[in-house]
Design a protein around this nucleic acid. Structure first.
Lengths: 142, 142
DNA sequence: TGATTTAGTTATCAAATGATAATTAAAAGA
DNA sequence: TCTTTTAATTATCATTTGATAACTAAATCA
């Protein structure tokens, strides 16, 4: 096993991960938001509070486009904007009550599909999977 | 460790995988093709020859849109269409010479970034990664 | 043979996304 | 204070993507 083989194996996993992600998430999100808006909400969910600049950086989106999408999410009452009291140029974005509900529903769907996927795994399998996740998280996808 | 924790850990990995995929692939593809077209070429690269129907299924794209993008790729001389001699409705798609070159270049960039990423890993780390990739591929992302 | 199904195409439309220029307002630096 | 930098917004435009209807041609079915 040289590094070239490892690369190919890794690419194969990336492909599978993308396919499974699609299976887990398709139709899980509300129809009232676009894919990009869902991605933003997902990011806010795990990192809130966040600034528009951070969203722009992490989602590889220009500031103008980030601003536009945040405005739409705000109009849909899914997020709230709070301005920083120290630096009044900055804003902090967090999910609104409705946003929390929407994301909770999406995650419930996704988790139930995930549980289906691992329902046939034995206790030993689950332990192996758990360990494998740790290894890849720390050593490859850091 | 219950299944709920495993779910969260898995979601964390999905997020990391998507981030790293972006890091590995950004600007790796030629500017002459769109992201969707690159995805199609990637699929053709690893699965050729493929039919338009297979591309449509695997890339979650409607047949009309698949047909349109394949036409564009064909006009850019990146793929070739061969019709099946048995069933003349079917087509087989493969990369053209130019398509091979374009994808080879993209993969070279991606692989070199991948090698950078694992350059500090020890031999034992690499073995662990290899084993972890196998486990996740067969037991979780099948 | 005639009807139905399958594989793929063409045309068209709407919506989502990406890119850029110009602007505001506040903060930081000289 | 004056200038520059930073954070975010607005407006605008082109391109990409997704969705749908209508179609052709070949294969299969009854």
């Amino acid at each position: 096993m040289d590094n070239k083989d490892l690369f190919n194996k890794c690419i194969a996993l990336l492909t599978s991960v993308h396919r499974v992600t699609h299976e887990l998430t398709q139709n899980a999100k509300s129809d009232s938001i676009t894919p990009v808006q869902y991605k933003i909400l997902e990011y806010i969910t795990v990192s809130q509070p966040v600034t528009p600049s951070e969203i722009s950086d992490c989602q590889n989106m220009s500031m103008p486009n980030t601003s536009r999408e945040l405005k739409k999410l705000s109009e849909k009452k899914l997020i709230e904007k709070l301005s920083d009291t120290e630096d009044r140029r900055k804003q902090y974005i967090r999910l609104s009550k409705d946003g929390e509900i929407l994301m909770k529903e999406a995650f419930t769907t996704i988790e139930s599909r995930f549980q289906d996927r691992i329902q046939n795994a034995s206790k030993e399998d689950l332990q192996e999977i758990d360990r494998a996740l740790d290894i890849l998280q720390t050593k490859l996808f850091y």
